[in-house]
Design a protein around this nucleic acid. Structure first.
Lengths: 234, 234
DNA sequence: TGCGCCATTTGGTCAAGCCAATTTGCAGAT
DNA sequence: ATCTGCAAATTGGCTTGACCAAATGGCGCA
């Protein structure tokens, strides 16, 4: 029985790896309330049979759940559900949040660019122009300008001289392209959407060149809001 | 060969699960430079033999590495090393100046409170008032109102409904009181400084009650700037 | 030279089994 | 009757071996 058995909640067309599907189904089991609090789940052998997967596959799923803090595995004892009280805070596991992510970026990067605009040097501006040229080049050659996009936002954040802010911007950016959100993201990177992003980057740069903090803030907010919209629309 | 074989770097007395030990050893392999960049690791069968573990155990380790973004597994193709360039971003080594931390908080929380002010409910306001009362009580009884302070900032961030923003505020707050920055901080929490903080919190609350986003923004920025100054002065 | 098919490589999953840590329950002692 | 201790049952940890499915690469044919 090699192929996707797709019992239970998992869609028949789910192409993700079995351990991911299985992990989700176990999460559902916990959420459904069948097992909650510090309760103990069925034994591996039993749970595997119950879900229609082999024990090794179930084990892989359990490791994933253990890593994101959903369960705790005690050797010789059993599988225990961990405090479901505040998994929302840490458990970025799925829950999703493309819109949340982009909103967070809009709020934070808009605030940062106000700081950046004040101390923007000609040298930094030149670097930013270079990324836009490279971005245009990528688009012309049908390559995804993700690195250039990343650099543009990161350079602005770094120009504040605050490494913590730069770190936060970096992490939020990478969140989108990380394998964690891979399940959600389709392939929103169309040529059109990249062209639109490039145009918005130019608008941001123009505001920075004019040393107009408020215009830069507005342009950045507009850019990230639009970017989030494009992402959601696929 | 059931028992811990402990070949390679893993200590003989390592009692962790095999997949964790194995994951660490693969990380070392990558760090050592043997395989880096977007390089491809040996095939599962080969790598398992090379590390002296079974394929299922190696697979468990690979899943752990995949989840934390160290590698990417492509079905039928191979195991690829992912951007090894940014381990610092997540590592949160900090070692950075308190002033940077407080500046980052000022920038970010000031931006957040603008959002929060717009959707502030009477219920949330009541919760905030309660934290201020509890804070006053703590001060009166010469207890450190750290938890109340934390709650005040966190509640505001959470009121935006954006879990990512709340998470960031939470992490930045905890950064200050974490053992990581313990070496830096003296004991800036004097009764006077807490009283000042309480007064500033009241000012922020007043702006929120008036539903004045700009006033709230200014009050929050002022509070965190002043707080940073107090911290530095010990 | 170019294109398409098939063997090879590589990850994905399953099955069965044995070892080790824990828990459970029963027997014997108090 | 209760407590103690050891052995059997339970449960996770790990291995071996095998087969399927997706990618890849090379070879032959056009």
């Amino acid at each position: 029985m090699p192929v996707n058995y797709a019992i239970g909640q998992t869609s028949m067309t789910d192409t993700r790896r079995l351990y991911q599907q299985t992990a989700d189904r176990v999460r559902q089991l916990i959420a459904k309330g069948d097992h909650q609090a510090g309760a103990r789940l069925p034994a591996e052998r039993e749970l595997a049979q119950q879900l229609g997967v082999s024990r090794p596959s179930l084990r892989e799923a359990l490791i994933a759940l253990e890593i994101d803090g959903t369960i705790e595995i005690r050797m010789g004892s059993g599988i225990y559900v961990l405090n479901t009280a505040k998994p929302a805070g840490n458990g970025r596991s799925l829950g999703e949040s493309p819109s949340e992510l982009m909103q967070a970026r809009a709020v934070i990067e808009s605030a940062i660019i106000v700081q950046a605009a004040a101390t923007m040097t000609e040298e930094t501006l030149a670097t930013l122009r270079a990324t836009l040229e490279a971005m245009a080049d990528d688009i012309a050659n049908t390559r995804k300008p993700i690195e250039q996009d990343r650099a543009f936002h990161l350079i602005i954040a770094e120009s504040t001289g605050n490494t913590l802010l730069a770190e936060i911007v970096e992490n939020l950016f990478d969140e989108r392209h990380s394998p964690l959100s891979a399940g959600i993201r389709g392939h929103f990177e169309t040529a059109d959407s990249w062209t639109a992003a490039l145009t918005e980057h130019h608008a941001i740069l123009a505001a920075l060149e004019a040393r107009d903090p408020l215009a830069a803030q507005a342009a950045m907010h507009s850019h990230l809001t639009a970017s989030g919209r494009r992402w959601l629309e696929n």
